[in-house]
Amino acid sequence: MSIWEYANPVRFMRTSAVLLPWVTGLAVLALGAGLVWGFFFTPDDFRQGSTVKIIYVHVPSATMAINIWAMMLITSLIWVVRRHHVSVLAAKAAAPVGATMTAIALITGAVWGQPMWGTWWEWDPRLTAFLILFLFYLGYMALWAAIENPDTAADLTSILCLVGSVFAVISRYAINFWNQGLHQGASLSLDKEENVADVFWQPLVISLAGFFFLFLALLLVRTRTEIRARRLMALKARERLA
């Protein structure tokens, strides 16, 4: 059996029905544990005070915002190359979640920036790049919504996703060039010297896992909905033709 078997809608529906409760459970557990630990059982930062605790929402949502787009890029490519419907429907299902994650990252960033930088919004490269990413999500979703024929919509949104990804990367470099910014360096990196202190790090990783499983659960639910909608559409069409 190959992994492509899951690209069959029926198989996907069966497998996802089994997985969904587990993924949801993991999401609730990890998110609950990570956020409670992070908010209530970590010390205040010596410079940033308790404001630092927004990191447990800000960093995971920002990480998911980028990775969800990357996932959409991969699933769109799979659709273009192998024409698996589930793949492109997963991209469609992921987009609103990704847009919400981006919005959360932007809002928490503003809330964090106000006491730290003294301003709600700063045209800092990272913040600006996320704003642009948000616009890309909006465009992607708007294109899906505008096209009636689902296969045409799938093809065109996939092309937009591919081209948009290239431009998103170029924009990131252009924005860096345009303004050096105030934002601190990466919060999580393999280079230990750069990392946030261990006390903050452990709950952060758990929240990150929580956000990941939350996304996975939402993705499964939304993809199942999309598949059902497509089946309904196909059944109605068959009835009309009969």
Binding site: L135, L138, G139, V163, G164, F167, S171, A174, F177
Partner: peptide
């Protein structure tokens, strides 16, 4: 406009 304007960002910046 919604699709094209974000793609214009790098050109505008440079």
């Amino acid at each position: 406009s919604l699709l094209v304007l974000p793609l214009y960002v790098p050109t505008l910046i440079f």
